[in-house]
Computed example of a mutant assay.
Amino acid sequence: MIALQLIGIGTGNPDHLTGEAIRALNQADLVLLPRKDNAADLADLRRTICAAVLTRPVPLAEFDMPVRAGEGDYVAAVHDWHDAIAAAWRAAIDAHLPGGGTVALLVWGDPSLYDSTLRIAARLPDTVVRVVPGITSIQALTAAHAIPLNPLAGSVTITTGRRLRAAGWPRGAEVLVVMLDGCCGFQSLDPAGMSIWWGAYLGMPHQALDAGPLAEAGPRIVETRTALRARHGWIMDVYLLRKDQG
């Protein structure tokens, strides 16, 4: 039997880990560390977190992260990708913990918010899953800009860049938080009367922020994002959009 602990680690800053997350890591028999092409920094960050908070020797098992197919039906490609990731987890666990035990997997942000780790974990038989919540990129974004998430007595809509490009501004939305946007989907919107608060690598030493009227800040963000991705080989960013009150 495998006890799989999905541990939210915020945006990569060891200070973002909760006390519960630190205890869970130290109780593990094995920590899984995915490796991604062109994103060695992500694996290094996970190792840095482990080195900062582990108070006992816990084995670290690295595995190569499968790549999602970029063509064909998107939903089918994601399901196939999740199957491949689950198989990679199982292979690493069987190789390093054949008798079973407690396995920890570090998850960026919080496992409940626009993350597929729980759906992948459901593919593993004979596995009990425990979630340790973490700081989300949304919390880190609003803290970095020192802004409230919601308008007074108002609502917040959370969506993805793919949905924003496909459907535009959601009907009835007052404030929009956009995640998983690799193409700066805000460019598809009419920027008139709209403001943006953007952040990348939140909580890390190379954190980048920008904010202002979308018509002015949007082009800057596109340029900055392109340069940062080229420099680091990867980027994690999120932004908040708000229509100005007339």
Rank of each mutant, 00 (worst) to 15 (best):
Q5W: 14
L6E: 15
I7H: 12
G8M: 01
G8F: 02
N13S: 12
P14S: 15
L17G: 12
I22C: 10
I22V: 15
D29T: 13
L32S: 02
P34T: 08
P34R: 11
K36Y: 04
K36S: 15
A39M: 04
A40I: 07
R46F: 00
I49F: 15
P57T: 14
A61T: 08
A61R: 14
E62M: 08
D64L: 05
P66V: 02
E71K: 11
E71C: 09
G72A: 09
Y74F: 15
D83N: 15
I85G: 09
A86E: 06
A86Y: 05
A88V: 06
W89I: 10
A92N: 07
D94G: 07
G99L: 08
G99Y: 05
G99T: 13
W108Y: 14
G109I: 13
L113S: 02
D115M: 12
S116E: 12
T117H: 03
I120A: 06
P125A: 15
V128R: 04
V129F: 11
V129I: 14
I138H: 09
A140D: 05
A146S: 11
I158F: 08
T159S: 10
G161R: 03
R165E: 05
A173P: 08
G182N: 05
S188I: 01
A192D: 13
A192L: 09
G193F: 01
G193C: 07
M194W: 00
I196G: 01
I196E: 01
L202P: 05
P205F: 05
P205I: 04
H206C: 09
H206M: 07
A208S: 04
A211Q: 04
A211W: 00
G212I: 00
E216V: 06
A217C: 07
A217S: 09
P219M: 04
P219S: 07
V222C: 10
R225G: 00
A227M: 09
L228Q: 10
L228M: 12
H232P: 01
G233E: 03
W234Y: 13
M236F: 14
K243S: 02
G246S: 13
